[in-house]
Amino acid sequence: MFAVYKREFFSYFRSPVGYIALALFSFLSGLLFINQFGSGAISISSEIISLRSFFVVIIPVITMGLFAEDKKRGTEILFYTNPLSLFDVVLGKFFAALSLLGVMFLNVIVHMIITAVNKGVVDIGTWGSVIVYFFLAILFIAIGIFASALTDSQIISAILSFIIILIIQLISTISTLASSSVSSFLSGKMFSMDAEKVSKAVEKVSNGIKWLDPFAKTQDFRYGIFSVAPLVFCLSGALIFLYLTYRVLEKKRWAQN
C-alpha cells in the first residue's frame, strides 16, 4: 500500500497539475479569508464550509487520473502481477489523494493562526468544521476513485465523479423539490388521493432521501456539537465505494467480455 501511496502522492508534484491545484486552492481560500478579514469578523468555520463547495471541482480533478491513467498506459498490470492485494492499491491511491487535500488545507491552518493572532475566534466549532471537512473529503475521494476505476478516460472519470458529488451536494434541495412536486401530483386531479395521507407518505420518502445527505448530518459540528453517527456514515460510505472500486478492478480478472 505504501509503495502505491508514495508513487501517487509524489506524482502530483512531478507534473505541474499538483502545483496548479495548490495555487488555485490557496487563491480561493485566501480570497474567502481576506473578505472576512476585511469585514473585521472571521469565522474559519464558514470559510471551511465555503471551501467544501469546491469539492465538486477539486475532487474530480485530483482523483480522475488515479486509475484511468494506469489503464490507459497499461501500468495497471503491475498491480495484478505483483505480490500485493488490489485493495492495498485502492487504499494507497485513496490516501495519496487525501494527503494532497491535507496539503491544500495547510492554507486554512495559516488562516487560523492569523485569526488567533488577531484575537479572533478559533473555537471548538472551528475544529468541528475541520473534522467534517475531512470526513466529507474521505467520502468524496472514495467516490472519485470509484469513478476513475470505471473508465480509462480521465475526462469521463472527472465528469462522472462531478455528477455524483453534485447530486450529493444537492440532495436536500432535490428531496424537498421532489417531495413537493410528487405530493401535488398525487393529490391532484388525476389521482385525487387523500392529501394528508399523500403528504405523510411523501414526507417519509423525502426524509429517507435526506437521511443520505452527509451535509445535513454533519451541520451541528460547527457549533461544537460532535456526534459519532455522521462520521460513521461518511466512513462507511467511503468504505462501500472503495470496496466497489476493488471489485471493479478484480472483475477485470474474470470478466469474459
Binding site: A3, V4, R7
Partner: peptide, 27 residues
Amino acid sequence: GYLPELPPLYLDMTVLEYLNFMCDLKK
C-alpha cells in the same frame, strides 16, 4: 518477473525512481 507486451512504465518518473517504486511494490 513479468515483462508484458506493452512495458508497464510510468513515463513521468526517472528510471531510478521507477525502479525504486518497483522495489517498493515487490517489497
